[in-house]
Amino acid sequence: MCAICRQPGTRRGSGGESRRLTVDHDHRTGVVRQLLCGRCNSVTWAVEESPGLLEAVRAYLLKHAR
């Protein structure tokens, strides 16, 4: 299970292929953290590179909420 979204690693990609969980690690130190799905791994990497991004995305979504 993904440590963030709690989904199994057997989700299918757009081409139908099985996607495994990714071993997440700190890009500065190399220290292994936990297993993440591809989506959560991408989000984690983006926020780690630009910490203000998470709040900016949240504000954007709230602004456009229905």
Score class of each variant (00 low, 15 high):
1 M>S: 13
1 M>L: 12
1 M>T: 10
2 C>K: 02
2 C>W: 02
4 I>Q: 03
5 C>T: 05
5 C>E: 07
6 R>C: 04
7 Q>R: 13
7 Q>W: 00
7 Q>T: 12
7 Q>C: 05
8 P>A: 09
8 P>V: 06
9 G>M: 03
10 T>K: 10
11 R>I: 03
11 R>T: 04
11 R>H: 06
11 R>M: 05
11 R>V: 01
11 R>C: 01
13 G>F: 00
14 S>A: 04
14 S>G: 00
14 S>L: 08
15 G>T: 00
15 G>P: 00
16 G>M: 02
17 E>M: 02
17 E>T: 07
17 E>N: 10
18 S>K: 14
18 S>R: 15
18 S>D: 14
18 S>M: 12
19 R>Q: 14
20 R>C: 12
20 R>E: 13
20 R>T: 10
21 L>Y: 09
21 L>S: 11
22 T>M: 02
22 T>D: 08
23 V>W: 01
23 V>I: 07
23 V>Y: 00
24 D>S: 07
24 D>I: 01
24 D>T: 02
26 D>L: 04
26 D>F: 05
26 D>P: 05
27 H>S: 04
27 H>P: 04
29 T>A: 12
30 G>L: 05
30 G>K: 04
32 V>Y: 04
32 V>K: 09
32 V>C: 03
33 R>Y: 03
33 R>P: 06
34 Q>I: 00
35 L>M: 09
35 L>D: 11
35 L>V: 01
36 L>Q: 08
36 L>V: 01
36 L>Y: 03
36 L>S: 06
36 L>R: 09
37 C>R: 02
39 R>E: 05
40 C>Q: 05
42 S>P: 00
43 V>H: 05
44 T>L: 01
44 T>V: 06
45 W>L: 11
45 W>H: 07
47 V>N: 01
48 E>A: 10
48 E>M: 07
48 E>I: 04
49 E>C: 10
49 E>H: 07
51 P>Q: 14
51 P>V: 07
51 P>W: 15
52 G>F: 15
53 L>M: 15
53 L>A: 14
54 L>Y: 10
54 L>F: 10
55 E>D: 15
55 E>F: 12
55 E>S: 13
55 E>T: 14
56 A>C: 14
56 A>F: 14
56 A>Q: 15
56 A>V: 15
57 V>M: 06
58 R>F: 08
59 A>T: 15
59 A>V: 15
60 Y>P: 12
60 Y>A: 09
61 L>G: 14
62 L>W: 11
63 K>R: 13
64 H>R: 14
64 H>S: 10
65 A>Y: 14
65 A>S: 14
66 R>A: 13
